[in-house]
Amino acid sequence: MNSEHAIITDQLTKSFGSFTAVDHISFEVKRGEIFGFLGANGAGKTTAMRMLCGLSKPTSGSATIAGFDIYKDTEKIKTKIGYMSQKFSLYEDLTVKENIRFFGGIYGLSNKALKLQTNKLIDTLGLESQSGKLVASLPLGWKQKLAFSVAVIHEPSIVFLDEPTGGVDPITRRQFWDLIYEAAQRGITIFVTTHYMDEAEYCDRVSMMVDGKIAALDSPEKLKLKYNVESMDDVFYHLARAAKRGE
């Protein structure tokens, strides 16, 4: 295992019949890095992420996640990663405390660790008065922060965040990134997708997927230099406009 890298992919490919959703992608994500995974709708991001999480078998190519092989060790991978998306995060009809206990349990925390983590988490998020309430009654911003905290409750090597800040107000969006920074500083690798291009700037490096391939991969600063543009929005526009695939 290469201990410097949380993710290594080599020619990773996924085809559905004659359609190649992910087309020979090769990249590495360093341990503790905040890695932005960008791309147009239909570029293949979700398919790639599903493979990296061990949920979908590649057609060809190879990859290791936290040192584990994505063909053979999918169950081990699942214990080493956290996952959160805008669409699926928490059970609305469980309370805050029940959600934490449920996900902590799923992620394999012992009863003792679970109790400790639950209290710690409720304390850090300032959710004491809300801990017995149904998650459905929480404002979206709190739900998202809680969902993130739950996704890293087992201190995974990598956390996958699929558009975690969609629809969230601008202040909460920034508080969410504070949580991301804290996790990254603890050594958790962050793998994040977003449609907000200012958030692309917060990543150490970003990759841009176009038509199933990685069209560019570098730090935001270097990408802007390379394409001689002012913002990540322009980098995105420049690359995604060249897409041939009809979404």
Partner: peptide, 9 residues
């Protein structure tokens, strides 16, 4: 919402 930069433009 949820649409990429190019389609939004």
């Amino acid at each position: 919402t949820g649409v990429d930069t190019v389609s939004r433009k």
